[in-house]
Nucleic acid binder design. Structure first.
Lengths: 255, 255
DNA sequence: GCTTGCAATTTCATGTCATGAAACCATATG
DNA sequence: CATATGGTTTCATGACATGAAATTGCAAGC
């Protein structure tokens, strides 16, 4: 474990996670690392373009270097690109918000959101996270993982978000079984009151979920007929993405 | 200048810029840093989630940590989000590819591209770069910068991309003046044969270009009438984005 | 204009710890 | 079985990261 590297990354993280540009003093305090040390880290990171220095107000902010790194490194960029058209057309079809998410750690991560044009619509920011057990996206992602992961990711004690949240581990596990059978997840206000969400998985060639797509809308708008239609279109959409993705993948099958 | 940090960043960069996952040996050779040192860097970076280790084939690839950093740090995320709907609707209006770009260093950087659905269409990848002097996007971005920057960014010797490329500095400077007067740039096959591109700037409150939007299409499809229409719609689009962006900005006016 | 305060730089003696050669280990290949 | 290849660990060495403290630079207050 290389200490200067470790500490410098903390500094970088602090700079990146702050919404405002920070001064040396700020960073020193937040990181609890001596001033002169932080100073040298910053200096080095600036030389590498990881951090920008604004000489007007003597503040530090995230630099373009990171962006360059991501440009080639973003593990989801293929997924996003490949799926972008399908998700957009799905959004237009029902005029409801369409989300793309993946499992990270024990949460769902929203990668990208195509918002509907309606004024009453579901809203979230890319990068936001939610619990697995209370979202259709989360449950469908987990359902299509090896069952050995289920127990690890669904703890005994589950956070209640609304009246309808499943807080019993057994309930959730049963739900996962059903999702795995039917191929999609549906959730009525378990995560947020009045919000319904329908999700389907994007699977790799082994049948393990890579990502999932969901349509989320105010419960009031989701009639039974519409629900059926959404499920059909959503499944179609995911199947197409799956296909595209698998055909596109050879370049990531290294050496 | 903190050496371990500096070298570790090189390693990180190598891992990120490679299209395949690399082995320790690969990285050692590419970075020309001793094996054991690279090993420790990698180990540390893995602990920080900046790099992923795949134990199956003993390879290293970019990790999620970077993605998290970018999530909050991406200097263009606001611009992208704020402009996304306008650019999409512009694409639909003419069914031609719409680009969003910024100036970095002495090149144009394509931030995001909304592709038209036509089979003959302009294509580029986000993160791609082009010369300033041969693209509408580049010229419009530079035209709306202080004139003092013009000379610095337009060298005496200009690279010729096609028959039509302006390779005389004076020609380009005159062109910039005109663009500044008219408010948009148009380019017929100066960068690529048969490709026409029309661009307009997104300006900050001082009239300096932050970014630019362009419509690019095969020259054969761009009639005079269509050209005029595109210019009108493109200008409208940019004006709307400008407005949204300026209204949204307060949170980035730090401390 | 002088002083005071605050934050950014720079200095420097100290000893930590990053370093890389070499040894070691695990696995594949002939 | 021998050999090679690449990953992992060890270890003595001294380079260099470190942080306290001094210095500079700037701005506000008196």
């Amino acid at each position: 474990m290389v200490k200067p590297l470790f500490k410098a990354m903390q500094v970088l993280r602090i700079v990146c996670e702050s919404s405002q540009a920070l001064t040396l003093k700020d960073i020193t305090e937040l990181s609890e690392i001596p001033k002169s040390t932080v100073y040298r880290y910053l200096y080095t990171l600036i030389a590498m373009d990881m951090i920008d220095y604004n000489s007007n107000n003597e503040t530090f902010s995230p630099g373009l270097g990171l962006w360059w790194l991501m440009q080639s490194a973003d593990p989801f960029s293929k997924l996003r690109q490949v799926s972008s058209k399908e998700r957009r057309s799905l959004m237009r079809k029902f005029n409801e918000t369409v989300n793309l998410g993946v499992l990270t750690g024990s949460e769902v991560l929203y990668l990208e959101i195509v918002e509907s044009a309606r004024s009453l619509r579901m809203q979230a920011q890319p990068g936001a996270r939610d619990d697995i057990h209370s979202t259709a996206l989360g449950k469908v992602l987990l359902a299509f993982r090896p069952r050995s992961q289920w127990e690890a990711l669904i703890p005994e004690k589950l956070v209640r978000h609304t009246d309808k949240t499943l807080v019993q581990r057994n309930e959730v596990l049963a739900n996962l079984e059903e999702i795995r059978r039917t191929g999609f997840a549906i959730e009525y206000g378990e995560n947020e009151d009045g919000a319904t969400c329908i999700a389907a998985p994007i699977l790799d060639s082994n049948g393990v979920s890579l990502a999932a797509v969901s349509v989320s809308a105010p419960s009031s708008r989701i009639t039974d007929a519409l629900k059926k239609e959404i499920i059909v279109e959503l499944s179609k959409c995911c199947a197409i993405i799956e296909n595209k993705f698998i055909r596109d993948i050879p370049n990531s099958a290294g050496r």
